[in-house]
């Protein structure tokens, strides 16, 4: 078993905060984060040796930077692994986004002057004529800002959070709040109109796409 397993949380924090730096502890942490990244991204065949090194370095920096936020509710190694996985996956998603999602992003967040982000949603006519869906369509048009419409649709279309945030000139947490506010507005609008989201969902599921 590794020393990571043998050290308790308190010992880990003490070793990593020591002045001068505890070189052995730092080396063990780096090796551990590297293993987490390699195994966590095992299905990615496009990963290069340099990627592993870059992700490990970034994870190392973040773990050390955020030591004070570790509250001891989990094992130190699990906490550090969560950070390493966040670093690696965020980078990989953004790389995919750059390659595959440019067109979708350009459509949702036009850069041409005079065109605002997230213009009105066009809901398929077969779907939109249903009464329940008119309520939703109206709520989307009247309650949401253009940024909220674009961000919501980008999220549903699988655009990575960091990529959407970058397009909007904001950060992921602010983007989360923007989208959360949009969802709350829509939920409130549906409730006020006497429509339960589950009924709306069932109605949508029941519509044949072939009609």
């Amino acid at each position: 078993m590794s020393r990571l397993g043998r050290r308790n949380n308190k010992e880990w924090l003490a070793a990593l905060r020591r002045e001068p730096a505890d070189v052995i502890a730092l080396k063990e942490l780096r090796g551990y984060l590297r293993r987490v990244i390699i195994r966590g991204t095992a299905t990615r065949r496009d990963l290069r040796h340099e990627d592993i090194a870059d992700f490990t370095q970034e994870a190392m920096l973040r773990v050390l930077k955020h030591l004070d936020t570790f509250r001891g509710e989990a094992a130190f190694r699990t906490w550090a692994a969560a950070i390493a996985i966040r670093v690696a996956f965020a980078e990989l998603r953004q790389r995919d986004a750059r390659v595959n999602r440019r067109e979708v992003l350009d459509q949702l967040f036009p850069v041409q002057p005079g065109k605002s982000a997230g213009s009105q949603w066009q809901i398929d006519a077969t779907v939109a004529r249903r009464e329940l869906l008119k309520v939703l369509e109206q709520a989307i048009a009247s309650q949401l800002t253009s940024r909220q419409r674009a961000a919501l649709l980008a999220e549903i279309r699988g655009i990575p959070t960091r990529e959407i945030a970058a397009r909007l000139g904001t950060n992921p947490n602010a983007l989360y709040k923007l989208i959360h506010d949009a969802r709350k507005k829509l939920k409130l609008a549906l409730i006020r109109a006497g429509v339960r989201p589950e009924d709306l969902r069932d109605e949508l599921r029941g519509i044949s796409p072939c009609k």
């Binding site: 949603w121 066009q122 398929d124 279309r157 969802r183 949508l204």
Partner: peptide
């Protein structure tokens, strides 16, 4: 922007939860 039925279902599910 054209929104599909599948995307609407996902939106409504997000709103529901």
């Amino acid at each position: 922007m054209q929104v599909t039925r599948k995307e609407l279902i996902e939106l409504v599910e997000l709103v529901r939860v």
